[in-house]
Design a protein around this nucleic acid. Structure first.
Length: 663
RNA sequence: GCUGGCAUGGCGCAAUUGGUAGCGCACCGCUCUUGUAAAGCGGUGGUUGCGGGUUCGAGUCCCGCUGCCAGCUCCA
């Protein structure tokens, strides 16, 4: 009997020729594929001589990806069984699940998805085997002649086809047949693989989530296909846990909490993507801004204010009207005069709402001659900008059409650039921490070779500087090749929130282009005129968006310093109203936002109301408390701290505000 | 912008085949009030997002607009 040698999970072994992964890992039910010399293979394939083989369990990220990809196949089979006319697009695994695109006459309804799930369940129960078959391009084209999209993948280069690598990928062209246990071929699909051995592996850890349209190859120019999204997990328990995470995210949704907590709204009468802040949200926003202002002053920033509208010329100089006109509100044509015949007697002017603050800050810089002694010059503004976002992308306060940036532009010399960037990054991270965000990583966006201005050396220097600064921070650094804006590379700070979602927060961006376009200059120590470097930076990005992120991060339970109402005083019964009113007066004198609930409601109702409003401190007083000159604390989690002397209570609350504590 | 779905008092929802728009919370009033998430009773509030159309009759059917939701595309 011929034999081969192979390294199996780190152990060198002699195997009978023809041994497969299925044979090797027969006693390990959790193994779904194997890694052979670094590549993922179906278990049913034979182990080649000299190979290094590792078991890949379903819990491994690669194993999970394969599971999800296989689930996508089961979906596609179900769709074509229900509707044989459905044409297949692509069906890759994605984060938390998979999708598959179909060209069908009518879009899928929620009822259709239910029916498809039933059909998928049948396929899973049948325990169909995924069988790999190598074919030539010609064979594939012949076999798939009725699948126009698959043929396109086979004959055209697949640039831009998101997920297309899953279908063909590098090397051999393969078709995966789904084979029933009686040997009958149930279905097949062009696919690079690999797959789990049998549909039975999917068990009941998957679910279809929704359907939506998606462009073929992700381009608006192409026809729209109907995409079905699903999720898949190794077990039912993990599926349930995932659905619970989604439900938690829904409970925290700032749009929902914003309405419930009376923080802000988006009146239809104003228009899409334009928010109004109510008094409670106004307090939160004011606190956010106030603290930011104070810290900026400490860090040597100077404050400027600039208008919301400008003549178009400014954005011609900056280049925005060339590159970003689509993102701007259309021009207001002003000051034109005509005679009785309609002839123009006075030329009008186009005015625009500003989509960015930097051009205006440049005008502040340029308002007089600048000396090197003034640099770095840091101009800060809570600058409100307006961007005409396409109707489908507006999303609560995270993607609005009018929003306020905590925007600053730093003008400095080449030599100062590195120190200034280091300082800025430290400042950014420190400030975000003060708002309660803890978990960060950085992304370095580098030059897009298709879209940039300036010389290679300048880009190289800027990018290297940013990289050094990022590395020195000690944070994880993720490259984002080609992600830079045309005028310079950037570092962005990403943060993970309380339920593990990541948000892009601050950006620090180097810009050699705008100083050029605006011909900004300062006088150097030798009397020569020099061009400053410009650093764009925003910490919150937009206050509205940051507000939304904090609301979701805290699930509406803001730390005391941000809470709209910090203390609600609740008497056990009416006779203690006056006693608590005195306590409230003491707190008010310390600047605490306190409310006495002296309404006619009964005690338990008042507790419930305060609880629903997520007030951090509820102060209760009844006979026992009043006799002791004390109050009782009730916290948002229902826990209790009884009969705390009034002065001590005031001290504690003031301290919690001062230290930005969460309670 | 594209595809699909949705729009009923402040909020959450109901209204058989087209046939008198209801409920809970909130709000207002009255009665009640001593310990931890809803006291009781009564009341106000809607030309069903807007504009057309079909019909004896439209919340319900059709068309257009506005807004919202999900995804795609986009995000300086």
């Amino acid at each position: 009997m011929p034999s081969v040698n192979a390294t199996i999970d780190g152990v060198e072994r002699e195997l009978e020729a023809g041994t497969t992964g299925t044979d090797l890992f027969a006693d390990r039910k959790d193994v779904v594929v194997m890694r052979v010399d670094g590549a993922l293979w179906d278990l049913a394939r034979e182990v080649p001589s000299g190979a290094t083989v590792e078991a890949v369990p379903v819990s491994d990220p690669d194993g999970l990806m394969v599971l999800r990809h296989s689930t996508a196949h089961v979906l596609a089979q179900a769709v074509q069984q229900v509707n044989p006319d459905a044409k297949l697009g692509v069906g890759p695994p994605i984060e938390n699940g998979f999708y598959y695109d179909f060209d069908v006459e009518t879009p899928f309804t929620p009822e259709d998805l239910k029916a498809l799930e039933k059909q998928m369940q049948r396929i899973v129960k049948e325990g169909q085997l995924f069988v790999r078959r190598e074919v030539t391009r010609e064979e594939a084209l012949a076999e798939l002649s009725h699948e126009p999209y698959k043929c396109e993948l086979l004959t055209h280069d697949t640039d831009g086809a998101e997920g297309a690598s899953v279908e063909i990928g590098e090397g051999d062209i393969t078709i995966y047949d789904n084979v029933r246990r009686n040997g009958e071929r149930a279905w097949g699909d062009l696919c690079r693989g690999p797959h789990v051995p049998s549909t039975r592996v999917l068990q009941n850890g998957w679910s279809l989530m929704r359907s939506a349209a998606a462009y073929w190859k992700g381009s608006e120019k192409n026809p729209q296909l109907q995409r079905v999204y699903g999720t898949a997990w190794p077990t039912k328990e993990e599926l349930t846990a995932y659905k619970e995470r989604l439900a938690e995210a829904e409970r925290r949704d700032h749009r929902k909490l914003g309405a419930e907590m009376d923080l802000f709204s988006f009146p239809d009468a104003i228009g899409s993507g334009l928010a109004v802040f109510h008094p409670k949200g106004g307090i939160v926003r004011m606190e956010m801004e106030e603290y930011s202002r104070r810290r900026h002053i400490e860090e040597g920033y100077e404050f400027v204010y600039t208008p919301h509208a400008t003549k178009g010329k400014l954005f011609e100089v900056s280049g925005h009207l060339d590159w970003y006109k689509d993102g701007m509100y259309p021009a207001m044509h002003l000051d034109e005069e005509r005679d009785a015949d309609g002839n123009v007697t006075k030329q009008g002017q186009d005015y625009y709402l500003k989509p960015m603050n930097c051009p205006m800050h440049n005008l502040v810089f340029d308002s007089r001659g600048r000396s090197y002694r003034e640099l770095p010059l840091r101009l800060f503004e809570f600058g409100t900008v307006y961007r005409y976002e396409k109707s489908g992308v507006v999303h609560g306060m995270t993607r609005a059409r009018g929003f306020t940036q905590d925007d600053a532009h730093i003008y400095c010399t080449r030599e100062q650039m590195k120190d200034e960037l280091t300082k800025t990054l430290e400042f950014v991270l420190g400030l975000l921490k003060d708002y309660g965000l803890e978990d960060f990583y950085l992304e370095l966006s580098t030059k897009n070779p298709e879209k940039f201005v300036g010389s290679d050396e300048v880009w190289k220097e800027a990018t290297e500087t940013l990289r050094e600064v990022a590395v020195a921070s000690g944070l994880e650094l993720v490259p984002d090749p080609g992600g830079a804006a045309f005028y310079g590379p950037k570092i962005s700070v990403q943060t993970r929130d309380a339920i593990g979602r990541t948000w892009q927060m601050s950006t620090i961006q180097l810009d050699f282009n705008l100083p050029e376009r605006f011909e900004l200059e300062y006088t150097a120590s030798d009397g020569s005129r020099q061009r400053p470097v410009m650093i764009h930076r925003a910490l919150f990005g937009s206050i509205e968006r940051f507000f939304a992120i904090l609301t979701e991060h805290y699930a509406g339970q803001f730390p005391v310093w941000l809470a709209p109402v910090q203390v609600r005083a609740i008497p056990v019964a009416e006779p203690f109203n006056d006693y608590l009113a005195e306590v409230c007066a003491k707190l008010k004198a310390e600047g605490v936002r306190v409310e006495l609930d002296d309404s006619d409601e009964r005690f338990p109702k008042k507790i419930r109301t305060a609880s629903k409003e997520k007030v951090p401190f509820v102060l209760i007083a009844g006979g026992d408390d009043a006799d002791a000159g004390a109050v009782s604390f009730r916290y948002r989690d229902g826990s209790q701290d009884n009969q705390v002397p009034v002065d001590e209570a005031v001290r504690r609350i003031v301290e919690a505000v001062r230290t930005k504590a969460q309670v």
